[in-house]
């Protein structure tokens, strides 16, 4: 255990100088802010048009509500974060094996399992930092441009602020739970691959393939961790939250979805990490 902590400290030391780590932490927040800027420009054009020909009050209320934009911004950032985590996890171990630097760690300081676990922990720490920054950027960005408040149509409150915050908390929790599985999958690929290039290609390719196929699997996709995190072809609960906080009431999500969302990613991460540890104990480094 003391070796694991020593290796984790080493990993964090290396992260200070790693461009990959910087991109992982900063990119989701920056993409989220870029999205806000584009939406804001688009809305400015639409408002000019609406002032000339008139507009639906409900559409206006939706457009000006910061909660909806916040959820969309976070959703976009999480989509990027999931892809980056898969790529960074795949690159991490395999690139150090390509260079040969992992050999020094193995000989001088820690066993194979500790090295893999330290990398896993480091990616979680970077992921948490990235999430924190994304949340901060999304909150600050949406508050700067739009107004937080309940969705009101014709003086009638369609959804209260309290209900909105509850849904956002639930949506974020459901969206974040699969991220350790994304990291675990990347680490497994990293350990199994012959080179860093192969690892990153396979991890990103497989993530996008899961994204495409989950739409074709129906309810069987609930056994796939990738179903539950925001992605390009999004089926996560956060996508529904985006509609809920805008006052749409046609959102139907089965209770079973939440149960699967809760445990399938956790089972996946255990399987991925166990397989990675088994593989790393057997292969040449």
């Amino acid at each position: 255990m003391s070796n694991l902590l020593a290796i984790l400290r080493l990993e964090l030391f290396l992260s200070r100088f790693s461009l990959t780590a910087k991109i992982l932490v900063l990119a989701p927040a920056l993409v989220c802010l870029a999205r806000f800027a584009l939406v804001w420009l688009n809305q400015a054009g639409q408002q000019a048009r609406a002032s000339l020909i008139g507009a639906d009050e409900f559409a206006l209320a939706q457009a000006q509500n910061a909660y909806g934009q916040f959820v969309d911004g976070v959703n976009t950032g999480l989509t990027i974060l999931a892809l980056l985590l898969a790529a960074a996890a795949a690159y991490d171990f395999s690139s150090e094996r390509d260079i040969g630097s992992i050999r020094h760690v193995l000989i001088r300081r820690a066993g194979r399992a500790s090295i893999v676990l330290a990398k896993l922990l480091r990616l979680h720490i970077l992921g948490v930092l990235s999430l924190g920054l994304l949340g901060l950027a999304a909150w600050a960005g949406s508050a700067l441009i739009w107004d937080f408040g309940p969705v009101v149509e014709d003086g009638f409150e369609l959804i209260s602020e309290q209900e909105i915050l509850y849904e956002i908390h639930l949506g974020l929790l459901m969206a974040v739970i699969p991220l350790p599985a994304v990291i675990g999958f990347g680490v497994l690929v990293s350990v199994a691959a012959q080179s860093a290039t192969q690892a990153v290609t396979v991890a990103l390719g497989a993530t996008l393939a899961m994204d495409i196929f989950k739409a074709l699997l129906g309810e069987r996709a609930w056994y796939l961790y990738a179903t539950f995190h925001p992605s390009v072809l999004d089926q996560s609960y956060l996508r529904e939250v985006s509609r809920l906080v805008r006052g749409f009431s046609d959102v139907l999500v089965e209770d079973r979805f939440f149960i699967y969302n809760g445990w399938i990613p956790l089972v996946s991460v255990v399987v991925f990490v166990a397989a990675a540890l088994l593989l790393v104990s057997r292969r040449g480094l």
Partner: peptide, 29 residues
């Protein structure tokens, strides 16, 4: 070998050092 706490070190055929680090960062690592 890692349990020997640095009593064994190795220098490999290819210099196994991270290319993005400076010499000092590499040695600090």
């Amino acid at each position: 070998l890692f349990r020997l706490q640095g009593d064994v070190v190795a220098i490999f055929d290819s210099p196994s050092v991270p290319p993005h680090l400076t010499v000092r960062q590499c040695l600090e690592h």
